[in-house]
Amino acid sequence: SASLEDVKTAVLGLLVILQTKLYTLPASHATRVYEMLVSHIQLHYKHSYTLPIASSIRLQAFDFLLLLRADSLHRLGLPNKDGVVRFSPYCVCDYMEPERGSEKKTSGPLSPPTGPPGPAPAGPAVRLGSVPYSLLFRVLLQCLKQESDWKVLKLVLGRLPESLRYKVLIFTSPCSVDQLCSALCSMLSGPKTLERLRGAPEGF
C-alpha cells in the first residue's frame, strides 16, 4: 500500500504534465506521457489490482482522460474550469503507423480551432504528436469488463456518452463501437458483474 501511494503521486504528476505538454513542443512528450498513463491502467486490469488506493488511481486517471476532446481538424483539447475547450495546435487524435513515428509534419500553421486557440506554431513546419484515442478506448473496454470498484465504473459510464459525442475521437483511430456495445450488453446481462463490484448501489 505504501508503494502504491508513491505510484499514485507519480500518476497525478503525469496527469499534470500531460495537461501542460498537450499545448507545448515537442509534441512527442505529450504522446509519451499519454502512453505511460494508459499502459499503467492496463496493468491494473492485467494484474487485478483491487486495493482501494489502486481504485483511486484509476478513478483520477479516467476522470482526466475522459475529458479529452477533439475538433473537426482532429486536434485534441481539454475543457477549462468554465467548460470551454482549448484545442492544441500540436497534438492530434489520429492513429499513425509505428514506422512513421509518433509525430508527423505539417507544412505550416493550422487553421484556427473551433475553441480558444493555443499558442501559434513558431516555425514554418510543426511536428504534430499522435495521441490516438484507441489506446484509451481499449482500456475503457477492459474497465467495462473487469472493473471491481463501483465508483470507477460509475465515472466511466457517466463520462462515456459525452466523449462519444466527439465522433472524430472514435473514427480517426481503430476504435470498435461494436466491441463497446458488446461490453456494455455483457456488463448488464452477465451474472458476474454484481459479484465483482464493490460498493454498487442496492438494486443495481
Rank of each mutant, 00 (worst) to 15 (best):
Y34P: 02
L140R: 00
A183N: 07
K154H: 09
P201G: 13
K105Q: 09
E195K: 11
L12S: 15
G13W: 00
V168A: 07
T24F: 08
K104I: 12
Y133Q: 03
H44D: 01
A54M: 03
Q19A: 07
A54I: 02
S28V: 08
L164Q: 01
V38R: 01
N80F: 08
S48P: 07
T106C: 14
A183F: 04
R75W: 03
R127F: 11
R86L: 08
F87E: 03
C91W: 02
D178F: 03
E195G: 09
I170T: 06
V92F: 10
H74N: 05
D82A: 13
H40N: 04
P117S: 05
N80C: 10
W150H: 02
S107H: 13
T172W: 03
Y95G: 08
Y34V: 06
A30S: 07
P132I: 02
S163E: 05
S102L: 13
E162K: 07
V85Y: 15
K81T: 12
K104A: 15
R159V: 05
R198T: 11
S189F: 09
G118V: 14
D94C: 05
R159L: 06
S176C: 06
P191E: 15
L4H: 09
S88L: 01
V131H: 03
V84T: 11
H44T: 00
A70K: 02
T193H: 08
L160A: 01
E162H: 11
L184H: 01
R127D: 10
Y23N: 05
V156I: 06
S163C: 15
L144K: 00
R75M: 04
S55G: 12
Y133M: 06
S28A: 12
P116W: 15
S107W: 12
T9A: 10
V152W: 00
K46Y: 14
E162W: 07
P132H: 06
G203K: 09
L140D: 00
S1C: 09
E103H: 14
C143W: 01
Q19Y: 05
I53F: 05
R86Q: 09
M187L: 13
A54R: 01
T106I: 11
V11C: 08
L25F: 12
G115E: 12
S148F: 09
R69S: 06
I170D: 03
D82H: 10
K151M: 12
H29I: 02
L51R: 02
L43M: 14
C175E: 05
K167V: 02
Y133E: 03
K81C: 10
L135Y: 13
R58D: 00
L12P: 01
G13M: 00
S163V: 15
L135W: 10
L155M: 13
E202C: 09
P174C: 06
E5A: 10
R75D: 02
P191W: 09
S130Y: 14
S88P: 02
V168E: 07
S182Q: 11
V11N: 03
I170V: 12
V139F: 01
L14W: 00
Y49E: 02
S173L: 02
G158E: 15
L67M: 11
R86H: 07
S107T: 14
T9W: 04
F171N: 14
S182C: 08
A125F: 11
H44E: 01
L15K: 13
P116N: 15
V38H: 02
A30T: 07
C93W: 04
S176W: 05
L43Y: 08
T20W: 04
S28D: 12
G77M: 04
L12Q: 15
L18Q: 01
L76R: 02
L197G: 03
S176D: 11
G118N: 12
S1I: 09
E5M: 09
L68Q: 05
W150C: 01
L194G: 06
Y166K: 04
V16H: 15
R198C: 11
L157A: 02
L128F: 15
P79Y: 05
K145L: 12
P117E: 15
S163L: 15
S88F: 01
T114L: 11
V156R: 00
E97M: 13
Y90V: 08
L128D: 13
S3Q: 13
C185I: 12
Y90K: 03
F137E: 03
G115I: 14
F204L: 14
T172Q: 06
V16Q: 15
L110T: 12
E35S: 13
S39P: 00
Y90T: 10
T24H: 15
R127G: 14
E162M: 10
E97G: 13
Q42I: 08
C175M: 03
S56V: 13
A2M: 11
S1F: 04
Y45K: 01
P116I: 14
S173I: 03
S186H: 10
K151S: 15
G83H: 07
W150D: 00
K46E: 14
P112E: 11
S163I: 15
L18T: 02
S111F: 11
P79K: 10
L188F: 07
S72T: 09
T106F: 10
V11W: 02
M187S: 03
E35K: 13
E202M: 12
R196I: 06
L155F: 09
L76G: 02
Q142E: 12
R159A: 07
S72K: 15
S163R: 07
K167Q: 07
K104G: 14
L194D: 04
S173E: 05
Y34D: 02
L141T: 07
L22T: 03
H40T: 02
V92M: 07
K81A: 14
L164Y: 00
S48W: 07
S189D: 10
Y23V: 04
S173Q: 04
P201S: 09
L76H: 02
Q146M: 14
R138Q: 12
K104P: 14
V131R: 03
P26A: 04
C91N: 06
